[in-house]
Write a protein that binds this DNA or RNA. Structure first.
Lengths: 184, 184
DNA sequence: GCTTGCATGTAAGAGGTTACATGATTCG
DNA sequence: CGAATCATGTAACCTCTTACATGCAAGC
């Protein structure tokens, strides 16, 4: 029940069309809450019906027209209400962990490729986050008086910490699989 | 589409009833893949129909009878097939991160209680994992020749690393919220 | 007598995934 | 001429969550 709130946050940071939101959900905010364009369009329609967001037709040159959405006062109120409600601490869904435990009943060494592939994906994500941090959050003595900026940065630091932890763990997994494979 | 596989792994580790599985999913394997008893019963029924698992009626004293499930050969084959298929690296769902970014448009200080509550939950989980590790994976020169044991341990180490990372990050978040609150 | 634990389910609704569908423009 | 980008959607299906439902035994 939080995709609508994630969209509200994103639209408050910057108004945009469904398409633009879908792309933001492929980067930035999407690293903490994934969504496809189908989901996004459905929820934009619902939120427009509920009066949480306003649409504005924008004509463009050499491109299809787009509908630019922005958050209305009731939308802001709905977000504020959600922010004041407690949420359940995350229940993780770690499919790879299930596979690793399952490997005991199959060939553990066969998982090596899969784990190494995941390692590469996480290494890429980490590099991507670090590049984003250098781009957006370093300056000559960046003052960061802006609360929004500070909060975006702390969330990004969380993403960086997560990827670093995951990389270290996947190395541990790889070493363990090697140990099991080499007949030890 | 992996809950059925998580159940298969759990039943291979030890056969059991739907109720027992539901409790395991509150601990152990459930830390990496959450499931409620409703989901579990539904999938057990489906897997029994598909011949992936066998049921055995077990009469008990002073307790209701239970159906003990164990994995059949076709179930093992289905698990093995899944283990050899690649999976998408996790798309995280970090609701708290959405809230933190949203706090820029509300009162950042109001989030402090919520974040501290989450911190407590993660501290408890870490303590719980560490206790489990001491209980199950230390011994006088634990040999760990058993592949299943090694793999369960490496998954547990992942959980421990995750909770430690999360605690450190939540401390970072709390410090950031304090800084924003104290009118800096 | 009330709560907790054991044990199994149904049903409604919300949310998410996958496939299908269209149509213009730009770049190689 | 084909692929990628921009832009918006529908439909079917699967999964997940939440509420409801039952019934016995043990312990306080």
């Amino acid at each position: 029940m939080a995709l609508e709130h994630a969209i509200l946050v994103s639209l408050l940071e910057k108004p945009g069309s469904g398409y633009e939101l879908a792309r933001r959900f492929d980067r930035s905010i999407g690293y903490f809450w994934a969504a496809t364009h189908q989901q996004i369009y459905r929820i934009l329609k619902r939120m427009e019906n509920d009066g949480w967001i306003d649409a504005r037709e924008v004509a463009q040159q050499n491109r299809p027209d787009k509908k630019e959405y922005s958050v209305s006062a009731p939308g802001r109120a709905a977000l504020s209400q959600w922010l004041h409600e407690p949420i359940e601490p995350e229940s993780v869904r770690h499919e790879l962990a299930v596979k690793i435990r399952g490997a005991a009943f199959d060939d553990p060494a066969a998982l090596l490729h899969e784990v190494e592939r995941h390692r590469q994906v996480h290494a890429d994500r980490l590099a991507h986050y670090l590049a984003g941090e250098r781009r957006d959050f370093t300056g000559p003595e960046a003052p960061e008086t802006d609360a929004g900026r500070e909060l975006q940065h702390v969330v990004l630091r969380g993403g960086i910490a997560y990827e670093r932890m995951t990389l270290a763990w996947l190395d541990d997994v790889i070493a363990t699989l090697h140990r099991l494979g080499s007949g030890h």
